[in-house]
Amino acid sequence: MLEGKFEESSLMKKVVDAIKDSVKLCNFNCTEHGVTVQAVDDSRVLLISLLIGEASFEEYRCDRNITLGIDLESFNKIIKNGNSSDFLTLIAEDSPDNVLIIFEDKKKDRVSEYSLKLMDLDSDFLQIDDMEFDATITMPSSEFAKITRDLKTLSESLQIIVTKENVKFSSDGDFGTGNVVLKGFVDMDKPDESIKIDMARPINLTFGAKYIADIVKGTSLSESVTIKLADKSPALFEYKLPSGFLRFYLAPKFDE
């Protein structure tokens, strides 16, 4: 049996918001350590890897591994019904046909209970080996979201160029070009505002702007985002959770 209670429903709301436009159906795999999701978008360009660690829950219990096959659009309709500050409890039997979603208001005596039908989904869990990256950038997630939104208005591709001194985001479209250059710096007072650039080898990669626009839907999950890049390889974009992470692996574009 699974019984997981969040102190606030906001975390699950943000998680669903962050992934529902990239994947429609996915398995939530529940183990004693927490909940994981791995899913690939229909075009097989973007992979989502989510871990909501046990410590993200106020109370968590999962005696046996349980798989919840969830339609995220339906789940989102229910999860939106809770207030962000409500307790959120997920309950499922060992071989469940549905999952119970319970919201509890902290001040009033209001309890809202929903049941979501589960689906039987294929689960081909992918073992992603530890990848080697040539450059790592950590920056404020809101800044990365703004750069993505701004440059996407010019082109359907977004180029990321990393040198020793800086990282340059660049787009080249029909009516014009744009770029944003960031230098590494440390903000002692607000560490989350810092920009950290670690580069072993210079990087010049091009990505589909629409996929990065989907990735930055994770912005509300974390103050900062870490971007890991390697030549002609998928990039890793990571938003840290209080216990766990939301990672996106994005295949690049390149000349054949």
């Binding site: 360009v45 973007l46 081909d124 992918l126 998928p234 295949a251 574009k253 390149f254």
Partner: peptide
């Protein structure tokens, strides 16, 4: 022109 790659090219099990 840049071609979009898929993850299957990099992760064999996809």
């Amino acid at each position: 022109h840049h071609q979009q790659q898929t993850l299957g090219r990099f992760f064999s099990s996809l």
